[in-house]
Design a protein around this nucleic acid. Sequence first.
DNA 1: CAGATACATCGATGAATGTCAATGGATGTG
DNA 2: CACATCCATTGACATTCATCGATGTATCTG
Lengths: 131, 131
Amino acid sequence: MPVSEILPLPDLTARCSPAVREPIALEPIAPAPVAPEQIDPEQVESLAGLLKALAHPARLRLLSMVAAHDGGEACVCDLIEPLGLSQPTVSHHLKILAGAGYLTRSQRGTWAYYRLVPGSLDAVAALLSEL
Amino acid sequence: MPVSEILPLPDLTARCSPAVREPIALEPIAPAPVAPEQIDPEQVESLAGLLKALAHPARLRLLSMVAAHDGGEACVCDLIEPLGLSQPTVSHHLKILAGAGYLTRSQRGTWAYYRLVPGSLDAVAALLSEL
DNA sequence: CAGATACATCGATGAATGTCAATGGATGTG
DNA sequence: CACATCCATTGACATTCATCGATGTATCTG
């Protein structure tokens, strides 16, 4: 039987394990947290999703264009030409932005008007800063 | 020769073109800006790249773990196990974060220590808010 | 020098994403 | 009703991305 099974002392060869690199505790210590992060896994997934919805040039431009448009709203056909993408692609990006909560969609007649959700960008910015 | 070529008046059928939906100007008006956005295209690409680097759960967790680690820095081997990904994958994500300017890398001996760049998250958060 | 450890890079593979043409549904017009 | 416009959805395709095993390099130890 190897000695290590009786006296599981950290060996002195330098390895990565934090327990090895830390000075040896003489008294019993509280069990170190297994995960050295304090971020809620669900919150991380959520924030990553919010950022992924923003992480595209066309979508950032869409947000800016909608916000700067007359009355704070714009319909799809207003955005196609300045964006330089096809109508299905523009609708696709708008759907992603609306799904993430950055835009609201209201249909009036044949047109679909998109409007920036107030404070939505500041909210995700705040989440980033407190990370 | 169609009349429209002599008198190019906007027709009355409702179409998307803003010029059609706007009230008809009686006086000559300054040419409307073609692009109803005022965002610098380069800045949009840049911000999208910064956000793309953040838009992944593993990378957000890495930022959090590095920031919360002892001394504000952590080496790769400290992050592999709590993250639950392989060492090449962890190195891959760290490289992306460092390339975007969120982390710095300093090699000391065999270890590579990563450290959060102070203010980098607040900077991108500020860019988001002023979008 | 031989072996072990930490880390990056390479290559391959499966998944996700962006884009457009084509289609379809809904609304308004003549 | 027939037709045009706006918009979303579908399907197909190419590109990008995430992941891991294998390999290579550098450093440290004995």
